[in-house]
Amino acid sequence: MRAYHSGSLAVQTRVGVRDLAEHVGRSIAPGIRPVAAAFLEAQPMLVLGAAAPDGRVWASLLTGLPGFTRATGPHTLSVAGGIPSRDPLAQAVTEAGTPVGTIALDPRTRRRLRLNGTARPSARGLVVETEQVFSNCPKHLTRRALRGWAPIPGPGSGAVRRTGSLTPDQERLIRAADTFFVATAAPDGVDASHRGGPPGFVELVSPTELRWPDYPGNAMFLTLGNLEEDGRAGLLFLDWATGTTLQLSGVAHTEYGPEGRAVRFRLDAVAETEAASPLRWSAPEHSP
């Protein structure tokens, strides 16, 4: 997989950062270096993006004791447990070669690592064969401390509430969010990324439409580039105190204006899971 496809190149050219993007793109490696392997093994959560069998793109939260994600080779990431059976992506990885994007984000240290490639089921859960591995800077990352673990819900608990639009409670969760994750797709693969900002940076246009500013970042424009090529997107919001997850799937596009860029997202499917994550995090320390 090359560093950039035509969608990302088009956005880089429009914004005028092609030279910077070429320089930053040299940090993208096909394999997992030792420092990245050590980081992965210390993480209790991983966000995975992929397309479900019906074509919808989702971003899903996977959790486990540190070590549940680990590099088993220079190009392989093993994820114990795989995708929960109640998750919209539960049936997404049923054979080798499924395009996926992942991001390991540590709120404790404000570090993040992205690994894109293809996945296959395994006896342990699933394995990702990496094609792109790279770190991002801590810009827009909110610091949180891990306060502890809640009991993992047993069979029959943690039911998923599925709707086609947002409820008032879900809208309140989004308005209060300082962090969410976004998965996007393109012909050459899937990417999972992070978006952060002050509470309220995600605008509720309607119960089926969101809008957020595209803050200056690393000049790669992988997310916006994918939206140029495809448009499908999946968002993941997390209630850090209770472990509830809110997953949205729909389509998005970039708006360019004199005051900057923004992404407008129209959802067509919602999945809310109470206590989906056993991780319990502290109140936020917002990014400078």
Rank of each mutant, 00 (worst) to 15 (best):
A123V: 14
G148Q: 12
R264S: 13
V205E: 11
A275L: 05
T163E: 05
T130Y: 04
V127Y: 01
L61Q: 11
L166S: 06
L40F: 05
L267W: 00
H286P: 08
E209L: 04
Q91S: 15
L141N: 11
A283Y: 07
M45C: 06
I174A: 01
L126V: 03
Y215I: 10
G197E: 06
L238Y: 14
F181E: 03
N218C: 09
W240S: 01
E228I: 11
R280V: 09
A38V: 11
G189Y: 07
R266I: 02
E171Q: 12
F201V: 15
P258A: 14
G217W: 06
S6G: 00
W281K: 04
D239K: 11
D19K: 08
S165R: 12
R18I: 04
T130M: 06
I174R: 08
L204Q: 11
T208I: 13
P278G: 01
S165P: 05
V270C: 04
R147Q: 09
P138N: 09
G148R: 06
I174Q: 05
G164D: 10
G234K: 05
G217V: 05
T223L: 02
P187H: 09
P88Q: 01
H194A: 04
T242G: 14
A42Y: 06
I83P: 00
T208F: 09
A183S: 13
A51Y: 10
I32A: 02
F39D: 07
T142Q: 15
T72H: 02
G82E: 11
R172S: 13
T130I: 00
S206H: 08
L126F: 15
N116W: 02
E209Y: 03
V79G: 08
W212P: 03
T244A: 14
R264M: 00
S27K: 07
F134T: 11
Q43E: 11
G97I: 07
G243C: 06
I32W: 02
S122D: 11
R111S: 15
R175A: 13
T254R: 10
A241P: 00
S165M: 13
S27H: 10
T179E: 10
E95A: 14
F134N: 13
F39E: 04
E22V: 05
T184F: 09
P99Q: 09
P88G: 02
T245D: 08
D230Q: 14
T130R: 02
P121C: 09
L238M: 14
D188K: 12
T102M: 07
V128I: 15
D54K: 06
R56L: 11
L61I: 05
S85I: 08
G217I: 03
E272R: 10
E171W: 02
A96R: 11
I103K: 05
L227H: 04
V205D: 12
P66H: 00
R86Q: 10
T208K: 10
V15P: 01
P66M: 05
P207M: 15
A52M: 08
R124W: 04
T167R: 12
L204D: 07
H253E: 12
I32K: 02
D54I: 05
P53E: 07
P168Q: 04
A145Q: 13
G225Q: 08
R232D: 03
A29K: 10
S165K: 07
R56G: 03
I152C: 12
S122I: 12
P107N: 02
T163Q: 09
V182W: 04
V128T: 07
T208P: 03
P53A: 01
Q43R: 15
A159Y: 01
E255Q: 13
L62E: 06
R261Q: 12
A252Y: 01
G64V: 12
